[in-house]
Amino acid sequence: MDLISQLAQTLLSTLIDVLPIAVIIFGFQFFVIRKPVPNLRKVLIGFSYVLLGLSLFLMGLEKALFPLGRLMADQLTHPDFIYEGIKTALQTVYWLDYYWVYIFAFSIGFSTTIAEPSLIAVAIKASEVSGGAINAWGLRIAVAIGVAIGIALGSYRIVTGLPIHYFIIFGYIIVVIQTFFAPKMIVPLAYDSGGVTTSTVTVPLVTALGLGLAESVPGRNVLIDGFGLIAFASLFPIMSVMAYAQISEFQSLAVKARRTRDTIDNP
């Protein structure tokens, strides 16, 4: 009984979130385009599947993974865990003491990105549009590695208290350089993958990690240092996706070069 009322509640709040989108879409469809939607029935059924799916997804996360993940972020960043039993007042922080935090940040960044529904959607579309040249799993893994590195580095920044804009500006410089060397076809998709990664699954866990860290590291201000992990998580996938495209290009070039050499050697 409890489950059903919970589901109804989540369904209602998802419905409220989706309402503006539905109003805009159907408003423009009926008043501006003024043509019937092709397969209207199918589209509406699809919409209800999306609504139901998203509600179940969010409710399941809230029931199973989020409480444990949040608790974990809290415990891993707690001084009791980091300095087991050492009670001396620590004013200086040695960044390596937080190694479990970085490992956690990396693995939670990777794994939540793999499960991110909006990334799955973009990967499906990209593989469809490119005629299979872009592999949906390859893209998702490349993005996930980017997010993982981003969040691990972002945690390091919170521990050390370095100003965020140095990292972001340095990241921009790398992105700009990569843009001129990466295959042209991947560039827009790579830029997109930055914004796509951070939604339903990643944001709540990553925010808990950032706030927990900023709270427990001496000398950090929660309000100032607790933010910024999302920014790291949206910057690094741009680099990793372009790097992935460059590596695959080099590989196919190498294969081609070997083939031509083989044909020259054994005609």
Partner: peptide, 17 residues
């Protein structure tokens, strides 16, 4: 629930969105 939800979402994605 998460598994079921993700399945429905992707199904509806290709059907509606």
């Amino acid at each position: 629930f998460v598994v079921l939800g993700l399945t429905f979402f992707i199904y509806g994605l290709e059907m509606g969105l």
